[in-house]
Design a protein around this nucleic acid. Structure first.
Length: 207
DNA sequence: CCAATGATTGCCT
DNA sequence: GGCAATCATTGGC
């Protein structure tokens, strides 16, 4: 049922205009990382959309361009990774076209593979394989660092890529998607209320 | 040059 | 619920 052969999402998935729709569709997709000769993977279970130049919560609000945010102006399908609070690397996926700086923040995952490496990276003896929450933790588990900012998520060959995302066939029912306002952006005034946060809350199986 | 700060986390009471 | 940790980035001087 779930196929895990190398099959990255195509560029066209990321270059669409509607970052909110893409954020929702990323639920159930699988992130793969190949760092330090280890493959890790995890299902995306929580995302947030950041809607470019019109979104007060976005780093690119009002066409703000700095060395850091320049990555957001790349074509869809690139990684935008930045350091938050001096401690945490936050992994985002750039979407839409070149010069339209949309991005999706990955906030929680369900780890699948590379669990032993995740233990080493986090220093934890137990990894939550049901729902590992927190964007800083996501990057730590998968080995994603600020140095990955700007890399292409649409690689041609498996050998030369460090991060990519696949649709491995998991269906996320609309009834299992919780939509709410985004976290930690109180400074964004009325935009802090936008329903741009998506969580896959799996229903418990019947006994 | 330099002070302020953040798309957070984990540990405290 | 409160709050400290910790530093690259940012913007102002």
């Amino acid at each position: 049922m779930h196929h895990a052969s190398f099959n990255p999402l195509p560029r066209e998935f990321y270059t669409r205009k509607d970052v909110v729709k893409i954020a929702q569709e990323l639920l159930g997709k699988v992130i793969y990382t190949s760092v330090e000769n280890v493959i890790s993977s995890a299902i995306i279970t929580e995302t947030e959309a950041y809607e470019g130049v019109t979104d007060k919560a976005s780093h690119a609000y009002n066409n703000r361009r700095t060395a850091r945010t320049e990555i957001m102006y790349m074509n869809g399908g690139h990684a935008y990774v930045y350091l938050c609070y001096g401690i945490h690397s936050l992994f985002n996926i750039v979407t839409s076209a070149t010069s339209d700086p949309h991005a999706v923040l990955i906030r929680a995952i369900e780890p699948l593979a590379g669990i032993e490496s995740m233990k080493l990276r986090t220093g934890k003896s137990v990894i939550n394989t049901k729902n590992a929450t927190g964007p800083g933790n996501v990057s730590k588990l998968l080995g994603i660092k600020v140095a990955h900012s700007g890399i292409d998520l649409c690689p041609v060959s498996e050998s030369e890529c460090e991060i990519w995302i696949q649709d491995d066939g998991r269906k996320v029912p609309d009834t299992e998607i919780k939509i709410s306002k985004r976290i930690g952006i109180d400074y964004a005034a009325e935009d802090a209320l936008l329903p741009y946060r998506f969580q896959w809350i799996k229903s418990k199986k019947a006994p």
